[in-house]
């Protein structure tokens, strides 16, 4: 199954769901889904690389950590990201995000993500062996 992402509905906010052959791919796709809440990912040039590391005893909380690390880097660097690379080893995530500084005219960012929540937070391996990673993000 090719890696992909989608959104799901929440009353006030939005859910992000990433799917892929591996856990890492599902995390990467969930990150793309989060970017898509803010802006069309295709409009963001992956020109600058930002390294991300996080660690958490629980794989589901690690998803929230990963997304929250991205929220933090977006806010502090005033950037948007469109390419992600993740490696997960023993609940330790080493990854990177590629993107560029926000250009308000060109990107027209719709909304700022405040944080990834633990609502509808799920990281699961599907019966076909693929992975799905999802949660609601607060906007």
């Amino acid at each position: 199954m090719p890696a992909h992402w989608e959104h799901f509905s929440h009353d006030a906010d939005m859910g992000v769901r990433g799917s892929g052959d591996t856990l890492a791919q599902a995390f990467e796709q969930a990150a793309l889904a989060m970017t898509a809440i803010i802006v069309d990912p295709a409009a963001v040039k992956p020109s600058e690389r930002v390294p991300i590391r996080c660690e958490c005893p629980d794989t589901e909380l690690l998803l929230a950590d990963w997304l929250n690390a991205l929220v933090y880097e977006m806010a502090c660097r005033n950037m948007l990201f469109s390419r992600f690379e993740v490696a997960i080893d023993n609940n330790r995530l080493t990854g990177a995000a590629w993107g560029e500084r926000v250009d308000r005219g060109r990107h027209q960012p719709a909304v700022e993500v405040k944080g990834a929540t633990y609502t509808a937070l799920q990281v699961r391996q599907q019966p076909d062996g693929s992975w799905q990673a999802q949660c609601v993000v607060d906007v």
Binding site: C56, P57, L61, A64, D65, N68, V71, Y72, A75, K114, G115, A116, T117, Y118, D138
Partner: peptide, 14 residues
């Protein structure tokens, strides 16, 4: 506020 919320949510769950 968003960062305080994010961090303490995790501490409190753990």
């Amino acid at each position: 506020g968003h960062q305080i919320g994010t961090e303490f949510l995790k501490y409190m769950v753990l």
